[in-house]
Amino acid sequence: MWPESPVWLVRMGRRNEAMQSIRRLYGNPDTIRHDGLLAQIEESTAKEEETNNNSNGTKGDIYVECFRAANRHRTLICMFIYMCQYLSGLVFVLGYQSYYYQLAGFSPRKSFLLSMLNNVSMFVANICSWFLLSTLGRRPLIVWGQLCGAASLLIIAGCSMLETRAGYLGAISFIFVWGFTYQLTLGTAAWTVVGEIPTLRLRSPTQGLSNMALCISQWAVGFVFPYLFNPDSANLQGKVGFIFGATSFVGFVVVYFYLPETKNKTPIELDAIFDKGARGECDRGHAGPATSSTGTARV
């Protein structure tokens, strides 16, 4: 039987059960101090309750609270990161790559094989990202992944404009580059970051709102894309890379300035980072986000 969340147990005042849950979840005490982790959860939970009680004396709806000053940045960046997945050209590569290969002159059989090869490449990239998340962190993968994705999409669009065999081969090559880069960075790191950024108490509603933003962006892009891509409509084909390259670059700029590093950060440390942003202590005069001595973006 899966153990109950120690955070929920602490909120319910069931401290002993919370310790038992921590022991089951984390195993060997030589790897992580169980009592220290429980103390962190208790401190973070107490701080969240104090903040909530001091919010003009009103509690209100929990979803409304996600957009109050103390939590607004956390909620919006989580929603935006999820939206970036479909604003970065995912529908084009995963949904229409085989069709694009056929428009480029490949047979249906070869187009299908190329699609499967790209999917295998993305699967390998996903596995590689597990190790990069633990070494490089979340912020570098998402920030520079967005920039690399934007560059790849613009190259795809430029090659498609040539409408030659060499141009199409160049575009297909960078479709593979985009797929590998996406799954190595944003495609994996987004799910991790959105699970770490919200406060413990608002994690569920924040993730719910983020998923709602993901579904809306998925529907909007999925609805508009065929009219942009298909030969019997706007007939942009690979030139849709100009559109998604631009939206990916916008995503790069936003996450560069507003996404902090969450790797190895406790809930208390993340609370402190976002509290500074809520009080307006971020230095907006620099070209990039200000950083602390640990390299975390000040927000």
Rank of each mutant, 00 (worst) to 15 (best):
C84M: 15
L236F: 13
C128P: 06
T51N: 12
R23C: 07
R15Y: 10
S129H: 13
A125Y: 08
D271T: 02
E48F: 06
T75Y: 04
E42A: 05
L162S: 10
F80V: 03
F123D: 08
P29D: 05
P205T: 10
T31S: 09
Q85I: 07
Y258L: 13
G13L: 03
E261G: 01
R72Y: 06
R279L: 08
V194F: 11
T164S: 15
L136M: 14
R284S: 04
V193H: 09
T135F: 09
S5D: 15
I197R: 02
I41H: 05
P267S: 02
Q183C: 05
L136F: 15
R72N: 04
F180R: 00
T296R: 01
R74F: 07
G60K: 08
P289H: 06
T266Y: 02
F229K: 05
Y101M: 13
T51K: 09
R139S: 00
K276P: 00
L236W: 15
V250F: 15
R298N: 06
N119K: 01
V120C: 15
V221C: 01
Y96I: 07
L87C: 13
G241T: 03
V10D: 01
A69L: 11
L38I: 07
S134C: 10
L202P: 07
K239E: 14
C159V: 04
V7P: 03
T294P: 00
S204T: 09
